[in-house]
Design a protein around this nucleic acid. Structure first.
Lengths: 342, 342
DNA sequence: GTGAAAGCGCTAACAC
DNA sequence: GTGTTAGCGCTTTCAC
């Protein structure tokens, strides 16, 4: 069958899917021309464009983005790392990040940093291996080793939900310390003198409540008792935590590290006949979608998650398209939303 | 320098990152041997393995998964399509899906079907273009065109959160009709005779409440008034919806299409002095993480989201590794969780 | 405006 | 156990 001088063609057929070559052959042009007709239609003649589009329609051709990414060293893929997907605070953020990137033609790969068995370096390796056009880190405390790998990869990195003094690359966030201080001042302004803290055991919650405590003391408030619960925080944790706090010395207000904790505190207070806000002022953190619609409605801290997502997306896209994204650090701040509970 | 018959080498250097060739050269072996040392270490000699690993460590080499995927036609990427990321019902599901796939060495790409401007075919094209090893669809009503494209792509597809008569490929879900009927029977069993419905305007919620209505009528209950709200549902919708229902003819129970709606109904009832469950029984859907910890705690329907995610992950992984995943349709059922609100 | 050639970085197939 | 070769499907570079 095969000529003696030429060994038989090794069969290695790939996916079997329609390729650009098939489209080009059908349209009667070179593959590169078909490629141009699809990616830069203004650079080919009307006639060629029409023939190629017709061939695409006829064959159902879908470009292989892995091949395109390999050849162009642009993957149009962005990695997003979250502590955990299952935390409602990140919903708006994740949605706007994914949405804004999708609109710009990028797809999002998600990684959970906190998931059991996912060591940070394994996660980073899996991400870098895909050669994404950008990496969005969500409030990650990354090891020195991790920072080094990210830096070495040369991939644009956006850190979010925080304001570190030394960002790896770009940063969109707000100051957790400022949040703590603002809440202390807010409660002080409302005449509260016996604050308490109900907080998850993650690093950022800790920084908020440490700053809260310091500011409270500076304002002459009592030393706040602290109930720490495991992250991710839940309504149940909020109920249990408040119950614990109420067993201790008298308090007239509580700063919770999440709205879920605050909802739990609200619930527990109601069940025990503790009036909110008369007997106890409750402040949350996160301003979940429903925090304004509970009864009493929740006073909380809004952190502009959707906007963080949009800015992060913009950072990545600008850099990927070779434009200057402007200032590398954005402090989006936060707002204390005064409602009924405090 | 270069022989006259051969034109000078064109420069085309890629990402500039360390490649397998670099590692191989440093280790003094052929590239394919370095590849084997990393992917199938048991098939190379101890000596070679050690040398390669040392070269990897020295260079900080991270394999390019796009290149590997292109060569092997296995991307180790799975696409997950959600109606929207910002719906708490999907939290457990998304987390377990991502986690289970990550453990098996797969990464997850997310797509939002409901996001403004994302037409279904554009989303599918973006997904298929990546040649993922699997696609997990979340309760999507896909067009005939979409089904055709998916089928033509040859990529394993898992549809979830539903039980369609004709799945594209594999399926893990539960029956929305059965849910509606079970809740009707539950309320009937509790002596309720004047049911109402408070539902989002998506297709699956509609199917639940149509079945609920039919079963209620069959059981001799009154024709239920229906308040429809826009999806995604919120606590505020729940409050407004219940207020609307209370303005109509008398009711003694309400079946809500999400726990968030039910929470809103609970809140509105309390504010209006309507006692739950004495005056009004409230049943939700979804069993959110905190639904058991409100006061009154919420009677609802649990739908095993985490398990759906795990099964979907298993389906994809088994198929990707060439094993038989077993039965292609899994009905995970649901449970009516009886708590205080009904 | 169009095309030929040469890779992007890796692995499957086939030797030895 | 290790190496050679030929791609995977696309885009870049350079030439016409």
């Amino acid at each position: 069958m095969s000529p003696p001088s030429k060994p038989a063609r090794r069969s290695r057929r790939g996916s079997g899917a329609v390729t650009l070559h098939d489209v080009a052959r059908l349209a009667g042009v070179a593959p590169i021309t078909a490629s141009r007709a699809l990616r830069t239609p203004e650079r080919v003649s009307d006639e060629v464009r029409a023939k190629v589009l017709q061939a695409v329609a006829r064959t159902g051709y879908v470009p292989n983005l892995m091949a395109g990414g390999l050849a162009s060293t642009r993957s149009r893929l962005v990695a997003a790392v979250l502590p955990t997907i299952a935390a409602p605070v990140f919903l708006d953020y994740a949605q706007s990040l994914t949405g804004a990137l999708a609109e710009a033609g990028y797809q999002v790969m998600v990684g959970q940093a906190g998931y059991a068995g996912t060591r940070e370096d394994a996660l980073l390796e899996a991400i870098i291996g895909r050669r994404p056009d950008g990496i969005v880190l969500t409030g990650i405390v990354h090891s020195a080793e991790g920072r080094k790998r990210l830096l070495a990869s040369g991939i644009p990195v956006v850190e979010t939900w925080d304001l570190t003094p030394t960002p790896i690359d770009m940063l969109v966030g707000f100051s957790h310390e400022e949040v703590g201080r603002a809440v202390a001042r807010y409660l002080h302004g409302k005449g509260r003198r016996l604050p308490a803290v109900l907080a998850g055991d993650d690093a950022r919650a800790r920084r908020r409540f440490e700053a809260f405590r310091a500011e409270a003391l500076a304002l002459g408030l009592a030393e706040p008792p602290v109930a720490v619960v495991t992250t991710p925080t839940t309504l149940r944790h909020g109920r249990e935590g408040l119950a614990r706090l109420l067993r201790g010395r008298r308090i007239d207000s509580v700063f919770c590290s999440s709205d879920l904790l605050a909802m739990g505190a609200l619930t527990e207070a109601r069940v025990r006949g503790v009036r909110v806000p008369e007997d106890l002022a409750v402040v949350g953190f996160g301003d979940l979608e429903f925090s304004g619609d509970t009864s009493p409605s929740l006073t909380t801290v809004r952190i502009h998650g959707a906007e963080i997502g949009r800015h992060a997306a913009r950072f990545i896209v600008e850099r990927a398209e070779g434009r200057d994204p402007g200032p590398r650090i954005i402090d989006l701040g936060f707002s204390v939303i005064a409602r009924e509970s405090a």
